[in-house]
Nucleic acid binder design. Structure first.
Length: 946
RNA sequence: GGGCGGUUAGCUCAGUGGUAGAGCGCUUCGUUUACACCGAAGAUGUCGGGAGUUCGACCCUCUCACCGCCCACCA
């Protein structure tokens, strides 16, 4: 027996156990060895992560698809796994060390620190998997992978070595985005622009506002960014034809001026023509260095004075200008963002922001500060550290992404991979066509260490990229031997090399200390999880995957890179479809964030309403191309829906509605049953079509409407008289049919609400052959030929009649408990037959004490016009006849409105001539029907007035 | 600066070239043998403004306004 109330918290863990025990989600089930595979790789959550709303949505949608296809008989692999999340994880463990007052990362040393990280991973790293299970995720948990697993690491190394050999990975010294907080390079994508607004302003020579160093210091202390500082750079010598003794340049980052090695003006800028001709130089204030004034089109005459200071070591644009004019690159910042020894002594070791203040103040004191203006500009920040990023000159490893992007672009162009919704393809193309070299090295410890080994002193290090140290050494020896004696070679003779090899130390190589960007290993996820580089059966069977389900925020980070790597190493796209879902926001449309305090915890919602309710909510709201603003009231509403289903099942149970194995919905005889099986087919088709098209909301809506609006609201009510009656044959059929429809509901609903449906399924006994053990492995409804027009029409009439009577009862204020008679007049034989056939049902639902037929309508009755018949509720003395008159009057007006609208439309010749036939026909019918209605309603009104 | 999306009932959102929908909320009624996490009935909208295409526009085109997001730039 089912419990009286639906309690998700009691059901869900138990059902999860049953799935686990049965290994229900294992891929490659023997009985499906001939089935078509269906595969999805999970977007691997960070090992540090815990389930948030984004995960909940992402995994619900995947699970809906996976359960749907599993029920359709496919051999499903939903590949689970986690990402090692370089920076995030290293941060977490470092913080933990600090909290426990243990030695720091650097004190521990690399090996010991990594041991601690692994320890941490074993202890707390799988939290999110348990949370995903609570959500109902039907991953093949036996295949869990981790990006730092031995196997996946092997894939990473192989990819790196291969790409390097092909020249697609290279080492380069150029500007990178440097995160001074973590002392690592990060990729362009990991930089977020934060807007800064200044407020302070001052102009040299303004008598109202003499320069006040303290005031400025105060402003700068609050936030040193947000201001444009204009400096005078004195010319090294007077230049004929140029009046001033200085040139004014502007910057938002004054501290970088210490690294200026040039000033650029536009070649066509007449103001500076003389300076260029003379090859003039400026003397860099505070430093004293003479730096050239160069002509470069980079400088924009419209901006400021048209002269721009050039700091090649600390600005991406300046770097390019510097290259063109062979300007010196002077690094004035160290890894922590402090000033180096390459600046005047007074500033050495200062923090960059402290230096900024000092430099502005010092230049002002020298009379070289011309102006400070408040400005709004964006400042690059690290997405993890939230620290201001510095363009910094270092050696890093890069992927030639532009080359790898070519086939990845083509694959989407020719439809091998399709984005859903399609408009995301534009975003993808836009980025891919302008892709920049991808900086993949990170100065961290937690991650895949770069497989490059160095020889020699740091200044002129020679490196060898190989899968392991032995291989690297072999490469080294080979190269040294081949180049021995040649100009610039490491060894003058082969004998020198032999001596080294024979020495006790032998050939010493040092491995690159850097690790790879986390996304580098993520990019291999679709094939590395399946065993690549080995040629595994999984790879053969499940690659390419069927679909990738992910949020738009990682199209660049992840989707694009998987496309590139998949095509490069598998010669095949990693997925056929990419379903891009929205972001989950709060009720007001704001991004959820801890700092805003508007985070809705999916686990709290699961505790309160059950995982099924949360899942259904997310699926129902996942309309394509829109963000989801989550209102918790929706979750409650869908919990109520689950309860409704629960109670419908209880109703069936109480009425001995037992599913019959032999039951064939095509063979039902009773009109009600013929009607409901047709409706079931319609619902099943709608759900199937919705899921096939990734229209989760439509699929969810279709089953919701069917279960509640059709099955519960009407079918179960309509059959009560049969179940309570004594027509045994009808009873037997109806019981079986009720059970069958519920069965279909459970199946159609299972992808969305797996727990409650599995639970109810287990409770439903079946007569005849033993059912399969689990709903999640049962067959998806594939229904056809069940619709019957006559049953639809007949039940439609009953529903219409009952609704109308109920409506009139309420409007006429007839007490809900009062049973009243009903008299039908002017009815066709068919209508009479229908009324008789459903006599008891109609009486029950409309709360009538009898239905009779008469040639003329009784006096003093409320009248309803349905089709050709007039239905009277004789209530003289009970109801207020003037109210009834008003009601009828309103009905007539409404009908007249309908008729006029259609008639007017028809009277326009253009309408009739140019519209398709069915539209014209529709309007003709409207006129006829409305006119008919008006005639009958008017007659009814006359009777009352008479 | 480039691009994308949004603007529909009090709220959160669906929707289609052929007379506007759901959930929640609201009003009234209800102890009908599944369900008050329920049932019945009801109220509520110049579908952001303007122009155009069309026999017909909430839907297509253009334009304006406002909101949001992404990318780029920022001396």
């Amino acid at each position: 027996m089912l419990e009286k109330t639906y309690q998700p918290a009691e059901i869900e863990p138990r059902i999860n156990d049953e799935w686990n025990k049965a290994d229900a989600f294992k891929s490659g089930r023997p009985e499906r060895k001939d089935a078509k595979p269906y595969s999805i790789v999970i977007p691997p959550p960070n090992v540090t992560g815990s389930l948030h709303m984004g995960h909940a949505l992402n995994n619900t949608l995947q699970d809906v698809l996976v359960r749907f296809e599993r029920m359709r008989g496919r051999d499903v692999l939903w590949q689970p796994g986690m990402d090692h999340a370089g920076i995030a994880t290293q941060m977490v463990v470092e913080r933990q060390l600090m909290e426990r007052q243990q030695p720091s990362r650097r004190e521990l040393g690399r090996e010991e620190f990594l041991r601690r990280v692994w320890e941490w991973k074993e202890e707390s790293g799988s939290k999110i998997f348990n949370q995903l299970r609570r959500l109902g995720a039907s991953c093949d948990w036996s295949r869990e992978r981790f990006t730092m697993d031995e196997g996946l690491s092997r894939a990473v190394i192989k990819v790196f070595v291969d790409l390097h050999r092909k020249g697609l990975i290279y080492k380069d010294k150029r500007l990178v985005n440097w995160d001074p907080k973590f002392q690592t390079a990060i990729s362009d994508l990991e930089v977020v622009q934060v807007e800064k607004k200044g407020s302070f302003s001052w102009v040299d020579g303004d008598p109202e506002k003499p320069f006040d160093g303290d005031a400025l210091a105060k402003v700068l202390k609050k936030d040193p960014s947000g201001h444009m500082y204009h400096f005078r750079y004195p010319l090294a010598q007077k230049v004929p034809g140029y009046d001033a003794e200085y040139i004014i340049v502007a910057t938002t980052r004054p501290e970088t001026m210490l690294g200026d090695t040039g000033v650029a003006v536009h070649p066509k800028d007449e103001r500076y023509e003389a300076l260029i001709k003379a090859g003039a130089k400026v003397r860099l204030p505070l430093v004293g260095r003479e730096i050239p004034i160069v002509a470069d089109e980079y400088s924009d005459p419209e901006k400021g004075t048209g002269a721009v200071k050039i700091t090649p070591a600390h600005d991406f644009n300046d770097f390019e200008v510097g290259k063109r004019h062979d300007l010196e690159k002077i690094n004035v910042l160290d890894a922590f963002g402090r000033l180096t020894d390459d600046v005047p002594e007074a500033y050495r070791g200062l923090d960059r922001f402290e230096a900024r203040k000092r430099i502005v103040a010092d230049l002002a004191a020298l009379g070289l500060l011309a102006k400070i203006e408040p400005t709004t500009h964006t400042v690059p920040h690290g997405d993890r550290s939230n620290d201001v990023i510095e363009p910094w000159l270092t050696d890093q490893w890069y992927v030639n992404a532009a080359e790898l992007a070519k086939p990845a672009i083509a694959a989407v162009e020719n439809g091998k991979t399709q984005f859903v919704p399609k408009n995301w393809e534009k975003t993808y193309f836009e980025w891919m066509r302008n892709i920049q070299p991808w900086c993949i090295s990170r100065q961290l410890w937690w991650g895949h260490q770069i497989p490059a080994w160095y020889f020699g002193n740091p200044a002129d290090r020679i490196f060898f990229v190989a899968e392991n140290e032995e291989e690297a050494k072999r490469l080294a020896v080979k190269q040294f031997r081949e180049t021995a004696g040649k100009p610039g070679a490491v060894f003058k003779t082969s004998a020198d090399l032999d001596d080294l090899l024979a020495s006790p130390m032998g050939l010493q190589l040092v491995r690159d200390e850097d690790v790879l960007d986390t996304w580098f290993s993520s990019a291999l996820w679709p094939f590395s999880t399946m065993g690549w580089p080995d040629e595994t059966t999984e790879l053969k069977r499940y690659y390419p995957t069927s679909v990738l389900v992910t949020g738009f925020d990682i199209i660049f980070f992840w989707v694009a890179r998987m496309m590139m790597m998949g095509l490069e190493f598998m010669d095949e796209v990693p997925f056929g479809d990419v379903y891009i879902h929205a972001l989950v926001r709060d009720e007001k449309g704001q991004k959820m964030s801890k700092s805003k305090g508007n985070v809705i915890d999916p686990l709290a919602l699961i505790d309160k309403y059950g995982a099924d309710a949360l899942r259904f909510t997310l699926a129902a709201m996942a309309a394509q191309g829109r963000d989801i603003k989550l209102a918790p009231a929706r979750v409650e509403g869908y919990r109520n829906f689950a309860t409704k289903l629960w109670n419908a099942a209880r109703f069936g149970e109480m009425n001995e509605c037992v599913r019959q194995f032999e039951f064939d919905p095509h063979k039902v005889k009773h009109t009600l049953n013929r009607w409901i099986v047709g409706e079931t087919e319609r619902a099943a088709n709608a759900v199937t079509a919705g899921l096939e098209a990734y229209k989760f909301n439509e699929a969810a809506g279709a089953i919701y409407e069917f279960v509640w609006g059709v099955y519960c609201d009407w079918y179960l009510e309509l059959i009560k008289p049969i179940l309570a009656g004594d027509d045994e044959q009808a009873k037997v059929e109806t019981r079986a049919c009720t059970a069958w429809v519920l069965d279909q509901c459970l199946k159609l609903l299972h992808p969305f609400m797996p727990f409650i449906t599995e639970e109810l399924w287990a409770h439903m006994v079946e007569h005849g052959e033993r059912r399969q053990s689990l709903l999640c492995l049962s067959e998806w409804p594939k229904l056809s030929g069940l619709a019957s027009a006559d049953a639809d029409e007949e039940i439609g009439w009953v529903v219409n009649l009952v609704s109308e009577v109920r409506s009139v009862r309420t409007e006429m204020n007839i007490p809900a408990g009062a049973k009243i008679p009903l008299v039908i007049s002017g009815a066709s034989d068919a209508t009479v037959a229908r009324a008789r056939a459903h006599d008891e049902t109609i009486r029950r639902l409309a709360r009538l004490d009898g239905i009779s037929f008469a040639a003329v309508q009784p006096k003093g009755a409320a009248l309803i016009v349905i089709g050709e018949a007039t239905v009277a509720l004789p209530l003289e003395g009970v109801i207020d006849m003037s109210a009834e008159r008003n009601r009828l009057q309103k009905e007539i007006e409404k009908a007249e409105g309908d008729r006029n609208k259609a008639a007017t439309w028809l009277s326009n010749e253009a309408n009739v001539a140019k519209s398709p036939e069915h539209v014209v026909e529709l309007n003709r019918e409207r006129v006829t029907e409305a006119s008919d209605r008006i005639v009958r309603l008017t007659a009814a009104l006359k009777r009352i007035e008479a």
